[in-house]
């Protein structure tokens, strides 16, 4: 039985400050699938991730992004997130003064009660009960081997590289997206952290969530097994294959793909 893909990207062209970065990218991801996009630096991987989330810096000049059958190009970032898209950031921003727990609770409440008023404000004092929130958060934190103190620390402020990535996965676990994009989640992680983060992703990936892993190295793919691997060069997916392609890339590097494309 073939499933309608949750995320459909058709011939996507994206420019940053007038310079074209994505040059006709197409991709389909269904719920329950794990896809990996691999590619050398500068190939446009992070541009793709940020474009999916609607970062204002990235201008879609042509092509289409359909999420659950509908175009999201006109949707603001927050609406995309509430619709079920999630991106684990390569460089999560630090916001001193905002505790991790109050941030996460606000994010959950934004999903539960997306009926913001005309002025765009969220109804306050509603949403998940503080006790229930705390229970869920502590459960997930335990799975990710995070100290309880995390909850009261300021968001990403003074977090180590590994702590930041775990915090991203914790958010993903709590927000339960339909499609999760992991933007270079493996960068800056030691093996232990990589394993914990990957286990977190594996635990969440399943019939209800599709995953797009964006990475430069295949290291993370030793832990997260993709159904499909796509190779991205110069703003396009140039070849796709099964998990074995990651090994091939590791053995041969990206040059053979470049050569193949050139031919």
């Amino acid at each position: 039985m073939s499933q309608t893909p949750e995320l459909v990207v058709k011939n996507l062209h994206v420019s940053v400050e007038g310079k074209e970065i994505l040059k006709g990218l197409s991709l389909e991801i269904a719920k329950g699938e794990i896809h990996a996009i691999m590619g050398p630096n500068g190939s446009g991987k992070s541009t793709f991730a940020n474009t999916l989330m609607g970062h204002p810096k990235y201008e879609v000049t042509s092509g289409e992004i359909l999420f659950r059958g509908e175009s999201i190009l006109e949707m603001e970032t927050d609406a995309r997130a509430r619709a079920g898209l999630f991106m684990a950031f390569q460089y999560p921003v630090a916001i001193p003064g905002l505790t991790f727990a109050s941030f996460l609770r606000a994010a959950i409440n934004a999903r539960i009660a997306p009926a913001a008023g005309e002025d765009g404000k969220m109804p306050t004092k509603k949403g998940i009960a503080p006790k229930e929130f705390r229970k869920q958060m502590l459960e997930q934190m335990a799975l990710l081997k995070m100290d309880e103190k995390f909850a009261t620390r300021y968001l990403n402020d003074g977090f180590s590289g590994g702590e930041k990535k775990r915090a991203e996965i914790l958010q993903m676990a709590m927000l339960k997206p339909t499609i999760a994009i992991m933007d270079e989640t493996d960068s800056g992680l030691d093996i232990d952290a990589l394993r914990i983060v990957s286990e977190g992703v594996n635990a969440l990936a399943g019939p209800e969530m599709g995953v797009l892993v964006i990475t430069h190295y295949n290291r993370i793919l030793n832990y997260i097994k993709p159904d499909k691997v796509h190779v991205m060069v110069d703003g396009r997916i140039v070849t796709s294959g099964g998990p074995e392609m990651a090994l091939e890339l590791e053995a041969k590097g990206y040059d053979w793909v470049r050569e193949e494309v050139a031919q």
């Binding site: 989330m53 603001e76 934004a110 404000k121």
Partner: peptide, 24 residues
């Protein structure tokens, strides 16, 4: 962008940033 990427509407995200500014 980070806060909105978690589903917080722009106004709400701004509110959190301003509150965070004062919190310390």
């Amino acid at each position: 962008f980070y806060l909105m990427a978690r589903g917080l509407p722009r106004v709400e995200a701004e509110r959190l940033v301003v509150e965070a500014f004062f919190e310390p």
